[in-house]
């Protein structure tokens, strides 16, 4: 049986009908065309599908869309524009923190959530927070540098 779900997607009210087994990831990609949330492992291991729900980073592959009634969902598309990047996106650009780009939206959102709660996070804390997001280009050094730069930390020598 399909369920009606009313929620907010990137600041706009939305209403959909969804089968219970459709994940939030399925819905943001296929119904809303928000393909910045990437489908990697689809069972919670890789972190590529990270979005913000009520401001907190979550794995959208582990949340069914029907569970999002009344929630506010933000994907990477809600942050910055090509002309005016979000400070985290700018930091990623400056520190060459992306290669193929597959893990990047999730890395950026994870880092935004982390610094919102720990604005002066240490490099160790930053590495621990990002450990749940896999980068198969192994570009971690640049990513850590980028997040460190916004936490007021000297970027590591890489």
């Amino acid at each position: 049986m399909k369920h009606r779900v009313k929620f907010e997607v990137n600041g706009e009210a939305a209403e959909i009908e969804a089968e219970p087994r459709e994940t939030l990831l399925d819905v943001v990609r296929e119904r809303f065309g928000l393909t910045g949330a990437h489908a990697g492992c689809e069972h919670g291991a890789c972190g590529a599908c990270t979005v913000l729900v009520d401001g907190a980073a979550v794995r959208s592959c582990l949340l069914f869309a029907v569970q999002c009634e009344g929630r506010s969902v933000q994907t990477i598309e809600a942050f910055g524009t090509p002309a005016a990047l979000h400070p985290m996106q700018e930091a990623f650009r400056t520190h060459h923190a992306l290669q193929c780009g597959f893990c990047t939206p999730a890395m950026v959102l994870t880092a935004i959530d982390m610094l919102a709660h720990s604005p002066n996070a240490t490099e160790t804390e930053i590495r621990a927070a990002l450990a749940g997001n896999l980068c198969r280009c192994t570009g971690y050094a640049g990513i850590v540098d980028a997040v460190c730069s916004l936490a007021g930390r000297e970027p590591v020598d890489s």
Partner: peptide, 23 residues
């Protein structure tokens, strides 16, 4: 289903196939 962080991976792998989820 509460947080779903253990259950949903098991469902994605079809190791768990509940007929009804009570949220």
């Amino acid at each position: 289903i509460a947080g779903g962080q253990s259950l949903v991976p098991l469902m994605a792998l079809r190791l768990a196939r509940p007929a009804l989820l009570v949220d």
